[in-house]
């Protein structure tokens, strides 16, 4: 991955920085330049809540090549406590025991590593509470 492409997303991947619309209060992750609801262009930075509820999930058994060493793994959509939804891997869990509605907590983890001399890519993953 080109370094600038990785670097640009660090505030979101490492610190879960979102943007709260000053017009209507909607929180966006990642931040955007204009609110889809009220069209305001004024935002303030907020950190996302670190807990939420599992809305749906799947177990990936045929992964993209950079994830081969982790397969099979779970991925889900989690609705965080201030209403923002994210997609992330679910780790440190029993793949057979996942359930919609389960409480999840966000942790900072390694996502994957690129081959020789490539960078190690970090980000957020969820673990059952």
């Amino acid at each position: 991955m080109p370094a600038p492409k990785y670097w640009r997303e660090i505030p979101q991947r490492y610190r879960l920085e979102g943007a709260k619309c000053k017009g209507c209060g909607q929180v966006y992750f990642p931040p955007r330049l204009i609110c889809s609801s009220c069209k305001s262009r004024e935002f303030e930075m907020v950190n996302l809540q670190r807990e939420g509820e599992l809305l749906t999930y799947t177990i990936i058994r045929v992964p993209p090549s950079q994830f081969t060493d982790q397969s099979p793994y779970a991925i889900g959509i989690v609705e965080l406590d201030r209403g923002v939804k994210i997609l992330s891997q679910i780790v440190d869990c029993d793949l057979d025991k996942l359930e919609i509605g389960q409480r999840m907590r966000i942790e900072f983890r390694k996502i994957y590593s690129e081959g020789e001399a490539g960078i190690i890519c970090y980000g957020y993953k969820c673990v059952p509470v």
Binding site: E9, Q12, F29, P30, L55, T56, Y57, T58, I60, V62, P63, P64, F67, Q70, Y73, I75, G76, I77, I86, L87, S88, Q89, I100, I111, Y112, C121, G123, K125
Partner: peptide
């Protein structure tokens, strides 16, 4: 690419999550 694929999701995976939610 940055907020779905980066986490290791695939297209079958995205539709699988729709299926799981629809079944539930």
């Amino acid at each position: 690419q940055e907020y779905e694929v980066y986490s290791g999701i695939t297209f079958p995976g995205l539709y699988a999550m729709m299926a799981q939610a629809h079944m539930h």
